[in-house]
């Protein structure tokens, strides 16, 4: 925390919760250093206020960058194994990769009894990628942001206080909701493909309430539709927000624990103890959240395939 001695606690927390954002500032915007823009400009945000003023036309370079890097790590490791995979006695990395693949395969087989070439690989991608994203939470909270500050200050000549660096992609709702929304698109796609438009609309409007009487049934349809539509929308929202909420809360607790280090020796030792405790507990959470994201995705896919004979 060398460069953050001058920060107050709330500033420290704020700093940790702000993204490194690159985006378009509108014309006439007054920047943090007092300059006023004459034209819309694509630039790095120097404060949280600037970042939020950019609106939709901006990219969180830190979380998206880490997300891509971790995805690439996942892909490179697994691809390397896949290229040299042997059916004989496996060794080292292949053992590990096969354990993961088999775990995913078992889960998919037990929850998704349909023919689809995409669900199992997607589940594998989710499990490992989300786990890696969550795992960034276990890296000492100031280590990489501090490194980024030094890099920004000495190499790019930036004000170190304006270098924001969030390294846990899954604490960014953009990341978690992005994945959840892709799953949602797949739910819609497979629902249409497996059930047809009529079947899908029927599923949305003909239950939970149904009646043999045509008039009563007609009255039920809008009620059913509202219920089922909320149900449908709730799937991606709960999927994405669950992961985001868990990781955000975990990150927040790490930030709060990190604050105790500035409170003297006694507080520091206590904080260190807490950090170890929370870190161990968090290992469980990050694995569990990755697993839950994967399982729910499989279940949603399975529901999209389910033509509903048992309703």
């Amino acid at each position: 925390m060398a460069s953050e001695h001058s920060l107050t606690s709330s500033e420290y927390i704020q700093h940790h919760l702000t993204h490194l954002t690159w985006g378009k500032l509108p014309a006439g915007f007054e920047r943090a250093d007092g300059t006023v823009l004459d034209a819309p400009t694509w630039t790095l945000a120097t404060t949280g206020h600037e970042a939020s003023s950019m609106g939709f036309m901006s990219v969180n370079l830190d979380t998206l960058g880490w997300s891509l890097a971790l995805g690439l790590i996942f892909f490179v490791i697994f691809r390397m194994v896949a290229r040299k995979v042997v059916a004989d006695v496996p060794s080292g990395t292949q053992n590990f990769v096969e354990t993961v693949v088999e775990f995913v395969q078992d889960n998919v087989k037990s929850m998704f009894p349909y023919q689809n070439k995409m669900v199992a690989p997607m589940a594998l991608t989710i499990l490992v990628w989300v786990f890696l994203m969550n795992f960034m939470d276990l890296i000492a909270i100031d280590l990489l942001p501090y490194g980024a500050q030094l890099f920004g200050e000495h190499v790019l000549g930036m004000d170190p206080h304006h270098v924001y660096f969030k390294i846990v992609p899954s604490t960014d709702p953009n990341i978690t909701m992005g994945m959840a929304f892709f799953v949602f698109l797949l739910i819609l796609f497979y629902s249409f493909r497996e059930k047809g438009l009529g079947g899908f609309l029927g599923e949305l409007s003909l239950h939970p309430f149904s009646s043999k009487n045509m008039i009563v049934q007609a009255l039920f349809i809008p009620v059913n539709f509202i219920l089922e539509f909320v149900n449908l929308i709730a799937k991606p929202v709960s999927l994405g927000l669950r992961l985001f909420g868990n990781m955000y809360a975990g990150e927040m607790i790490f930030i709060l624990i990190a604050l105790t280090y500035s409170g003297g020796l006694g507080m520091g030792v206590f904080g260190g103890f807490l950090q170890i405790l929370w870190g161990m507990f968090h290992i469980l959470i990050i694995s569990l959240q990755a697993f839950i994201f994967m399982v729910l995705t499989i279940v949603y896919m399975s529901m999209a395939y389910d033509t509903g004979e048992d309703h």
Binding site: S58, T63, T125, P169, G178, M179
Partner: peptide
């Protein structure tokens, strides 16, 4: 923001 779209595309590509 665009991160959302970016992550969606990245997810699709990795899948």
């Amino acid at each position: 923001n665009l991160t959302f779209i970016g992550q969606m595309i990245a997810f699709a590509i990795f899948v």
